[in-house]
Nucleic acid binder design. Sequence first.
DNA 1: AAGTTCTCTTTACATTTGTTAAGAAATCAA
DNA 2: TTGATTTCTTAACAAATGTAAAGAGAACTT
Lengths: 181, 181
Amino acid sequence: MTTPSPINWPKYQHLYEEISVPAKTVLLEEGKTSRYAYYIVEGAVRLWFNNKGKDTTFQFFFEGEGVSSIESFRTGQPSMCTIETISAARLLKVSKENLDLIIDSEPGFRANLEGIIFHRLLRYTKMFIAQIRDTPQERYEALIRDQPHILQRVPLQYIASYLGITPVSLSRIRNKLQREK
Amino acid sequence: MTTPSPINWPKYQHLYEEISVPAKTVLLEEGKTSRYAYYIVEGAVRLWFNNKGKDTTFQFFFEGEGVSSIESFRTGQPSMCTIETISAARLLKVSKENLDLIIDSEPGFRANLEGIIFHRLLRYTKMFIAQIRDTPQERYEALIRDQPHILQRVPLQYIASYLGITPVSLSRIRNKLQREK
DNA sequence: AAGTTCTCTTTACATTTGTTAAGAAATCAA
DNA sequence: TTGATTTCTTAACAAATGTAAAGAGAACTT
């Protein structure tokens, strides 16, 4: 779930729960099985995993997006990553069972799922390509250009690991770009 | 198309063409629209794109796998990458139209497509994560461990760009690992 | 308001990687 | 086989990144 869903949510109000949580709330812990998907009404969320004791962020989500550990939610396997709020957030929380009910009640939505997954595939493919093709500086410049909202709302340390570099290195790149102006 | 398809191919012999091509044959050129998908009977194929004049490989395919520029084949947009044989190859070549005919004739296959795309999504997600989490040396060691067949059949220069490094750097890593034994 | 925590930057040094060039080794073609 | 091409390794130097530590600044808590 990454794109805004076309679901008529109010119709299914009895099947989901609206929750408000503070910043740094863990919605799903790495290694546990995902039983809920979330839809972000307000706030920012990141996916990260533990890497030799360090915290590596690999994806951000914002208002209007659905979040889950997609592979765990679908396959029932333990999640590769933790889902955690960055800021205080309002979320719709839906269990797997109830989401299935909703999806089956919305004609044509099940067919749409393939399209949603396809576009997420493209997104990760492009992220992988950017990673082997571009330098960290180029990836940072692309982030500023294409997704400036991330920069405004996410602490730089998380952005650094998302770019595959350390906060120190990101700081140097920012310094360099500023001097060049 | 990345997983071996469950299609009963002989039944549809009139809808595809079996071709034999030498090494370094371009099956699809970057920037052009993909009109054919291929199934590899024998041989090795890589996907690469032009990166500031340099050749960057980002995926390999072998016997029993289907190959296409998946996003171009599906959306009709120009391909991000070139598809090229690494070695001499025997291939089944299917047009988009005929593949649709075949898929529609095989009950349940259309539904399977979502699963195929889902698993390819997982694969790219894991490649992206490995890229921001692991060092080039760790990625090379994982390649030896998990996909040794690639190492046996693909020139090291292509593997280097697949790992996101230069052939020189890969050579140093190989030298270092050998000395450590 | 004061203290605490979190975030970001900077410095110095070590390590890794990129670049360029040269040559060895392997492969291919005539 | 022989010559040509491709592939791989090595060397030297430049550039980028990682690590560790210190401190400034911002944000949050009480």
